[in-house]
């Protein structure tokens, strides 16, 4: 019958139209600013720097090794090393970044910086409402803005953060045990070469 196919199609449209009022799986839209779709735990957007404790400066895990700066495919990270040193989580004196900038207008959220970081210092954030009125300096995230607490990290990526904490605690325990075993007050050797050429 000519037109039968069209009528069949219209039946489908009618079912979808009526269904969109009653059947949950056909009601797909949400009213965005008021309602929000839940973000999956693995969601990633732009990187941030993790610090332990309350002090963003003292607890910052980053030791300014510049591996992420080198590996970043679009080259959006800029790091300047500090002149002095501060103790890291096991108490070894380490450098810290005097400047740590991420140009999020360039960043493409690939999380290669997270994968190459040997210190679990840089992780992916979930904040996505980042629109600015100016497209250059306003989209440059600086160290103060990037540094976020470990509690925040636990909030956004609970499973991953617990794993990271366990790994760091194990490393700290191993370092403490090593210190005890050596017993002599030899200066602690730096861990795996933090600054390869």
């Amino acid at each position: 019958m000519l037109g039968g196919g069209i009528l069949k199609g219209m039946a489908v449209t009618a079912r979808n139209f009526v269904g969109s009022y009653f059947i949950q799986e056909r009601m797909t839209t949400i009213q965005y600013p008021e309602e929000r779709a839940p973000l999956p735990e693995n969601y990633r957007n732009f990187p941030f720097l993790v610090f332990d404790g309350d002090d963003a400066h003292a607890g910052l895990r980053c030791v300014a090794c510049q591996i992420c700066e080198k590996e970043c495919p679009p080259q959006c990270i800029y790091i300047v090393k500090s002149k002095d040193k501060k103790p890291d989580f096991v108490g070894k004196p380490q450098l810290y970044p005097a400047t740590f900038d991420i140009d999020i207008s360039v960043c493409m959220s690939c999380q290669i910086c997270v994968e190459v970081c040997p210190f679990d210092a840089i992780k992916m954030d979930k904040v996505f409402e980042l629109s600015r009125r100016e497209r250059f300096d306003a989209l440059l995230m600086q160290k103060a803005e990037l540094a976020k607490s470990n509690e925040y990290y636990h909030q956004i990526h609970p499973t991953e953060a617990t794993d990271v904490d366990a790994g760091l605690a194990a490393a700290a325990a191993a370092a403490a045990a090593k210190k005890k075993a050596v017993a002599s007050p030899a200066p602690p050797t730096p861990p795996s070469n933090p600054n390869p050429a």
């Binding site: 600015r132 009125r133 100016e134 250059f136 300096d137 306003a138």
Partner: peptide, 12 residues
């Protein structure tokens, strides 16, 4: 010189 911003961010 760096391009000046349009001043809107001070408003916000």
């Amino acid at each position: 010189v760096r391009p000046s911003s349009d001043g809107a961010e001070t408003l916000t």
